[in-house]
Amino acid sequence: MDIFLQQLLNALSLGGTYALLALGLAVVFSIIGLINFAHGELMTTAGYVMAFALAAALPFPLAIILAVAAPVLLAVVMERVAFRPVRGASGTTLLLTSFAVSAILRVLFQNFISARPVPVPMPAALSGVINIGPLHLGIIQSISIATTALMLAGLTLFLNRTVAGRAMRAAAEDFAIVRLMGLRANGVVATAFAISGLLAGVAGLLWVAQRGSVDPLMGFLPVLKAFIAAIIGGLGSLTGAVAGGFLLGFIEVMLQAWLPEAWLPYRDAVAIMLVIAVLLFRPQGLLARKTVLKL
């Protein structure tokens, strides 16, 4: 029982990071129909800024602020430079554009920073353990869970309490009509990218805190997971992305925990099969939003 609870905590921590990432993808997809594969490079950017800020001996809180601000800025610039010119183009065009942006950023990281991992020395205080009864929770794991909860709560407040947030929810349902409210389309899209940059930055820091380094290819795997999570949840549904993230984390941890040893090498294959099973029952994902005809 204790072990199960412990694994549940583990699932919560991993699923939370996936949820943040999937949410970042979904926020943009819901509005302009773009799956931004360069989301991973936003994470990597947060990692590099953190590494350089710490290397420059900046105070830790300042380093965190800079590391989160950088991907927000980069996301907005990315939208302005790369995605706005192709807005409204076919899904394939959008996807290819995001692949290109992602590849260009990776090459820039490799050539201008380093192909090799750059260490991100986290303060020693972050490597402790918190014991709750029989449960052990690493400090980074606890921070990860707390940060996810905070981000989700903050985003929920933003989406439900502010005009900009409500405009984003409306835009996710029917972008053209939001413009009929006199709301600036570019503003709404830029806000969506800024939020996705924020989510990528926070998730990137949590990711880097675990691994202690950042390299040019760091973002690829997490963004793939986020993509799977977003598909499970129903692309374009924000709640679905969060649900998908937690479900994927839960599936991965529980399979790792309870699959027989001989099966463990096939854990990811089994996980993907479960995901496909979910999609067989709900082809549109867990919480698909109804597709709206656009003008």
Partner: peptide, 18 residues
């Protein structure tokens, strides 16, 4: 073309955004 998941009050708020 209403927004199905937004409340009536939210529609009025957005409609009056200007």
């Amino acid at each position: 073309r209403i927004f199905p998941t937004l409340t009536v009050a939210e529609h009025l708020l957005l409609g009056g955004a200007k």
